[in-house]
Nucleic acid binder design. Structure first.
Length: 393
RNA sequence: UCCGCAGUAGCUCAAUGGCAGAGCAUUCGGCUGUUAACCGAAGGGUUGUAGGUUCGAGUCCUACCUGCGGAG
């Protein structure tokens, strides 16, 4: 499943083999919650941006359109028109973000649908069944995500529940695989004859000893890859790195390591330097839709009046089709006018920047120049931010 | 020319004679396994003008100005 190709310090470049092709790591996975990476067409994702894997979401797709529709339409890949690998999140995080709408028990989670208020029940078994029906290539175990600031007293039972749910996820997943219930493999293509992969998730909030125990218990069950969950949910950044520093080196070296929900471009490089291989984050797409661009010179708030007649591209060192064709002035105009193209173009650029950054990260690890790359990348980001501060002052 | 109605933030409009507000627009900020093309904050006023009544006037009275409608 994972082969290390090069290593530079703790940073590693590798290859994840899924039944739908190989993925070079470190990799950023655009988030496509409801069967769409919001604001961008699959053609662009595949051809220009060359995204190798995107996310889908169990919770959202289960509620709408529902697994019957997706099964009858040949699984998630065929339904949405994406032939490359898909990773589906288990719904654990959604249940957490629903807040007061949920009720957690040993058996699973009872909650009200955010769509129509109907009572729903999600458990490790249901999550595995749904993900089998979706036919994604990487399935996530059903976990419970605790508050970032949760005390040991709260975080321990939550972590232990996640461990028990991980075992149930494993059992049900194996049963689905043995029964060939997984939609993705029913394609005639022999390349698709492989099983889905299943990743376990490490929890334990900000408590290092809980995190280590969680990792140990997850490894004992045995997964194709290991994820660190429950970070970037409001805790201090120093807490996040404390946890990653404690967990990442202990994660099996022959399996992919996935830091869920992270992060900013700087976060990605910081995590890669700690040995993380996979990332996903809504920032490039969400912030694109809400008027913020990520560039090699730091963040650009497209809404700002200072760009009103600026004929420069968002990022002069970006090769993406948006930067080659359009000015900041035009993008600001589109955003101010409420034109949908604003979000589309900004999303495109942001994803291009994230994916290109990861390409350069991989290259620098292979050539043994990752620390140098990281330093100059961060310096440029900071220079831009400092200039911005000067303009404001 | 006469009669009526209206004039309040950039725009559209609120406000028993008692602290002049909202929505939109503007400016700025936020967003980390998407309930999010979203959320939040700020700036912005000689209430058409000039008088009067009143403890107190956007509000009542008088004149004028501007706009709209009607009559002629």
């Amino acid at each position: 499943m994972f082969k290390e190709i090069a290593r530079d310090g703790d940073a590693r470049a590798g290859l994840i083999t899924t039944r739908r092709g190989e993925i070079e790591t470190p990799v950023f996975m655009p988030v496509g919650t409801a069967g769409t990476v919001k604001g961008i067409r699959f053609e662009a994702l595949e051809t220009e941006l060359d995204a190798r894997i995107i996310l889908g979401n169990t919770y959202h797709l289960w509620l709408r359109p529902g697994i019957d529709v997706i099964k009858r339409c040949g699984g998630l890949h065929r339904f949405i028109g994406w032939p490359r690998p898909l990773l589906t999140d288990s719904g654990g995080f959604q249940v957490w973000s629903l807040g007061d709408l949920r009720k957690i028990s040993e058996e699973g989670t009872e909650f009200r649908s955010h769509l129509d208020g109907s009572l729903q029940f999600l458990s490790p078994e249901v999550s595995m069944q749904v993900q089998a029906a979706l036919g994604s290539d990487i399935v996530m175990a059903f976990d419970e995500c605790a508050e970032g600031q949760a005390s040991v007293e709260t975080a321990r039972p939550s972590m232990e529940l996640t461990a028990r749910w991980a075992r149930r996820s494993r059992t049900e997943f194996d049963r689905m695989q043995n029964e060939s219930a997984d939609t993705g493999r029913t394609d005639g293509n022999e390349q698709l004859s492989g099983r889905q992969a299943l990743f376990g998730i490490v929890q334990g909030a900000s408590h290092v000893e809980l995190r280590r125990e969680s990792l140990q218990r997850t490894i004992e069950i045995g997964f194709d890859g290991y994820a660190i969950g429950g970070l970037s949910v409001g805790e201090d950044k120093s807490v996040m790195w404390k946890v990653v520093d404690a967990v990442a080196p202990q994660m099996p070296a022959d399996k992919p390591r996935y830091l869920m929900g992270v992060g900013t471009p700087e976060d990605l490089l910081d995590a890669v330097s700690r040995g993380v291989d996979m990332f996903d984050c809504v920032l490039p797409t969400r912030n694109g839709r809400t008027g913020q661009a990520f560039t090699s010179q730091g963040k650009v708030n497209v809404k700002n009046a200072q760009w009103a007649v600026d004929t420069k591209p968002l990022d002069e060192s970006c090769e993406c089709s948006v930067c080659r064709r359009h000015s900041r002035a035009y993008l600001r105009h589109l955003y101010q006018s409420g034109e949908m193209l604003a979000g589309v173009l900004l999303t495109h650029h942001n994803l291009a920047f994230f994916l290109d950054t990861m390409r350069r990260v991989r290259q620098s690890i292979r050539s043994g120049e990752f620390p140098k790359f990281r330093q100059s990348f961060t310096e440029k980001l900071n220079e831009g931010e400092q200039q911005k501060a000067l303009i404001i002052a």
